[in-house]
Amino acid sequence: MGWLATWYHRWASPPWFYQMSGRWTRGLMGLALPLLCVGTLWGLAFAPADYQQGNSFRIIYIHVPAAMVAQSGYILMASAGLVGLVWRLKVADVVLRNCAPIGAAMTFLALATGSIWGKPTWGAWWVWDARITSMLVLLMLYLGVMGLGSAFRNEQAAGRASAILALVGVVNIPIIKYSVEWWYSLHQPATFRLTEKPAMPVEMWAPLLVMVLGFYAFFGAVLLARSRVDLLDRERRSRWVRSLVAEHAI
């Protein structure tokens, strides 16, 4: 357990986080871009068309990864909130506050692509299906965290208030996940299951897997890049930022 404690203490220190997150951002972006390019090309051009939905199903390669990242983003945000509340870590606060806009964007992307996909498949742009509604609620939860965070003048209070809200909101995540089983509706059941073989043929889900990995890497890269800048701004009066600025000054 010793290495875990060391790792944890290192990442909790702002200068270390700043330095390492730079490397990680570059690494994750270097992973995300090829994955997203390959996945998009493979999914849109080479994967076989669906026998029922034809080519319109190809939007799944954006829709499903965006929805997955949107949901995990909230859980990550709430976890950062818990860490921030319990150990009073500045880095956790920063990660939480920067999770919200990216998560909101991903949720919006999932809703928008779902709506575009719904038109040819169900014949309507918007259907009040349990899962779509849950995603809409998720979007509002993200917007609430963003709104609350910006309403405070004191950054520390803003971080802790957002953390409490994120933790209360996390109660809704299981409802989103299990809404499909609770209310029978028009939406098809979850595409990926850990315990079963996917219902799609390999040629269809392999590019989807690539896209999902690409989206996660992209999310991580953007989150770290944003957090890094935010941390630098908040710590602008500290010694390590001053010496960093002095180092890079011409």
Binding site: V137, M140, L141, G144, G147, L148, F152, L165, V171, N172
Partner: peptide, 19 residues
């Protein structure tokens, strides 16, 4: 969460209604 904030009323609706 919103008790100390100016314009807390609308924010309160945004925070609570989804829940």
């Amino acid at each position: 969460l919103t008790v100390g904030l100016r314009r807390g009323g609308l924010l309160l609706v945004l925070l609570v209604l989804p829940l």
